[in-house]
Design a protein around this nucleic acid. Structure first.
Length: 473
DNA sequence: AAAAAAG
């Protein structure tokens, strides 16, 4: 089935074709005709399924007729994060460039002035995060009485973020006879209730989770020590061992994002960072540096886990195993996009057993365990890290133990540039490789060193069954 | 356990 059979206008079909798309995705095939028929819709789909175009395209055709009036937007799209909202706006620009649609992006973290100006001129499409929308609404800058089309995107994530009361509030301000489209990756009871309350006779469409069926992504688990210091060493070895063109590295905490980015830069990697504590302009700037190729590594919190569509990401690394299995699916979905192949590594510490179990349960498949990471040398000295005056983040504490694991002379040696390091990968040591006590294996041997684990922050005890690990001989 | 979103 082609786009031409979905009922879109000829003009729009030309734009879609020019953008290089020939075949609609399953959700587009099912959703577009229904949306054009003005039906309410529940779309159970992840990002990466072509979900955005499944509402953007028909909306462009629906809005092509009619004109907007001051402060009375004709349609509203709600997104959970600013980045996602901006991305949807980009989609409207891309597909709507031959239609004279006006649009306003209402997100926090930026000046209100331009947003207010756009509203006063009148817009066809409003793309918003709930906070800023409510704010502007309460200031009387928006009237929602002419808003006949509502899209609630990533509803389950809105729920996670506590936005449901806001969404309900917004829904009551729209005309009751409007068309409503609700998209969600999962259907927990509160979302079901929301749909029952605000949608009428909706058509339900469900498409497969992309990440669980995305065979383009090679997934691996890497047993990791628990100290942040030793973990970063392991990560650097992975980065050097792999053909990493562009990578997103996810951490569970904003502090970890900052520390890791700092550390990577110190070690000669070209990296940027993104998390929710940064102001919006820095977030955009860092993301742009990554998109433009100024840096090839982006260290990120889960703000970047969902929906972000960045082309050509070759690797995803989970520096921390995510606590929720859904987050894992979203994170690794940043690679292997649009038919490309990708690799996703997850560093797993002994504390992550349950998280990994849940991830594998969700995916319905085991993830390959990686037994060995080349390298095993560390050039980072923990004292250098300590220099930053003042309080040290809690997570860094176990690093003291890791220092003991660094051979004396090695610790003082300054980090060579990255390219050189690859060449002098093996240490100056005449003994044959197999005669040497393989340093990289110590983390796996730590099981013999007793439960106090004062060695390198490695496994405190036997390798857990869940990792089902073969220890290198 | 965290992160996200209004300022």
């Amino acid at each position: 089935m082609s786009f031409a059979e979905l009922g879109l206008s000829d003009e729009l079909l030309k734009t879609v074709e020019a953008a290089g798309y020939t075949d609609p995705t399953p959700i587009q095939k099912q959703a577009i005709p229904s949306v054009l028929m003005m039906r309410d819709l529940i779309g159970i789909a992840q990002t990466g399924t072509g979900k955005t175009a499944s509402f953007v395209l028909p909306m462009i055709d629906i809005l092509a007729e009619g004109r907007s009036r001051a402060r009375m937007p004709r349609s509203l799209i709600l997104e959970p994060t600013r980045e996602l909202a901006a991305q949807v706006a980009e989609n409207f620009e891309k597909y709507g460039k031959n239609h004279k649609l006006s649009m306003a992006l209402l997100i926090g973290g930026v000046q209100m002035g331009d947003q207010v100006k756009a509203l006063e001129k009148g817009v066809d499409v409003l793309i918003a995060t709930p906070g800023r929308l409510m704010d502007l609404f309460e200031r009387g800058k928006i009237l929602l009485t002419g808003c006949n089309l509502l899209v609630i995107d990533e509803a389950d994530r809105m729920l996670d973020m506590g936005f449901i009361p806001d969404i309900e509030n917004i829904c009551t301000k729209l005309p009751p006879n409007r068309q409503t489209l609700l998209f969600s990756a999962t259907m927990p009871p509160p979302i079901k209730k929301l749909a029952d309350k605000f949608l009428s006779n909706p058509k339900t469409i469900e498409v497969a989770r992309p990440a669980s069926t995305n065979l383009n992504i090679t997934q691996r688990l890497v047993p990791a020590p628990s100290s942040a210091f030793a973990k970063r060493d392991l990560l650097r070895r992975l980065l050097n061992a792999e053909d990493v063109r562009t990578a997103i590295i996810f951490c569970n905490r904003k502090t970890t994002v900052r520390e890791l980015n700092k550390s990577l830069k110190k070690h000669g990697f070209r990296s940027a960072e993104i998390h929710g504590d940064m102001d919006q302009s820095s977030r955009i700037a860092e993301l742009d540096r990554f998109k433009a190729g100024d840096v090839n590594i982006l260290v990120a919190s889960d703000v970047a886990a969902r929906g972000l569509d960045i082309k050509g990401v070759s690797h995803v690394f989970n520096f921390d195993a995510p606590w929720h299995p859904d987050d894992y699916v979203h994170r690794i979905g940043r690679t292997g996009r649009a038919g490309a192949t990708g690799t996703a590594y997850t560093l797993v510490t002994s504390a992550d057993a349950e998280a990994i179990e849940n991830i594998e349960k969700l995916q319905g498949q085991k993830i390959e365990r990686l037994g060995e990471v080349p390298g095993g040398e560390t050039n980072e000295t923990a004292p250098a890290e300590k220099k930053g005056r003042g309080r040290k983040p809690k997570a860094e504490k176990p690093e003291a133990a890791a220092v003991a694991d660094t051979p004396r002379g090695e610790a003082a040696r300054p980090a060579p540039p990255r390219e050189e390091r690859a060449r002098q990968e093996r240490p100056r040591d005449d003994r044959r490789r197999d005669e040497r006590p393989a340093r990289r294996d110590r983390r796996f041997e730590a099981q013999d060193e007793g439960p106090d684990g004062k060695d390198d922050g490695g496994w405190n005890g036997p390798v857990p069954d869940f990792l089902n690990f073969t220890i290198p001989a």
